[in-house]
């Protein structure tokens, strides 16, 4: 990637959805050079340089970033981009405007930071909403363990190679992933205690919500 990626995309996207170009000589710029073949384009984060990475190449991109000195994985999270029509609207509600455009997708965001150079870098992968899956960050950052479990729990993104990918906050067996935009929160969930293990067990039973 030779041209400054953010500038190229600035014209194509509405204002506010652009990311700053990495400063000359910064680690983020070196990342853009070293990981050129893994980068799809600029991201949308407003206050830190962000790159959209090919989902298949995410572990390699994280490895390059960590080798360059981005040693702190500050945050790993995701959000659901779901255009109107998929979310069931309450009667009489106005159709929401969605400015993000493009296909329905889940965007997983990795916010990295370098303690030595005091620089930020954000990576993003775009996954399809049906059975999204991306490589795990745990081999590079052990702290990603619980963060990925939380993303799996609340948004249903699978992380390939995660040592113990089970729900973090909700009981095992919960039906659905609540932070999906089309999650039906009127649906009743039934929680019971397993007699053998003493673990919470959740199942959906008609008319027996808690």
């Amino acid at each position: 990637m030779s041209a400054p990626p953010a500038a190229a995309a600035a014209a194509a996207k509405p204002s506010g959805l652009t990311t700053p170009a990495p400063a000359p000589g910064s680690l983020a710029e070196r990342f853009a050079q070293d990981a050129t073949e893994h980068i799809e384009g600029p991201g949308t984060q407003k206050n830190h340089p962000q790159f959209v990475v090919k989902p298949s190449a995410l572990p390699q991109a994280l490895h390059i970033a960590r080798r360059l000195g981005f040693d702190h994985l500050a945050d790993l999270t995701a959000y659901d981009i779901c255009p109107p029509g998929i979310i069931p609207l309450p009667p009489g509600a106005k159709e929401p405007t969605v400015v993000f455009g493009g296909a329905p997708r889940i965007e997983v965001v990795y916010n990295l930071f370098s303690y030595a150079r005091k620089e930020h870098l954000s990576l993003k992968v775009k996954l399809g909403r049906d059975a999204p899956e991306v490589g795990s960050a745990v081999p590079e950052f052990p702290g990603a363990d619980w963060l990925e479990r939380e993303v799996w729990d609340l948004l249903g993104v699978r992380f390939a190679g995660h040592p113990n990918l089970k729900r973090l906050l909700l009981p095992d067996g919960w039906a659905g992933h609540p932070l999906r935009k089309d999650y039906d929160r009127a649906k009743e969930q039934f929680v019971s205690l397993d007699e053998q293990t003493g673990e919470d067990v959740v199942s959906f039973e008609e008319g027996r919500g808690w």
């Binding site: 506010g16 959805l17 949308t44 984060q45 407003k46 206050n47 945050d75 400015v99 965001v109």
Partner: peptide, 20 residues
């Protein structure tokens, strides 16, 4: 606010409190 994504952080008594 205009459309956009930000990640900011402050120093909480326990450490980095970030908001995406």
């Amino acid at each position: 606010p205009p459309a956009g994504e930000v990640y900011t952080r402050v120093e909480n008594p326990r450490g980095e409190l970030g908001v995406l």
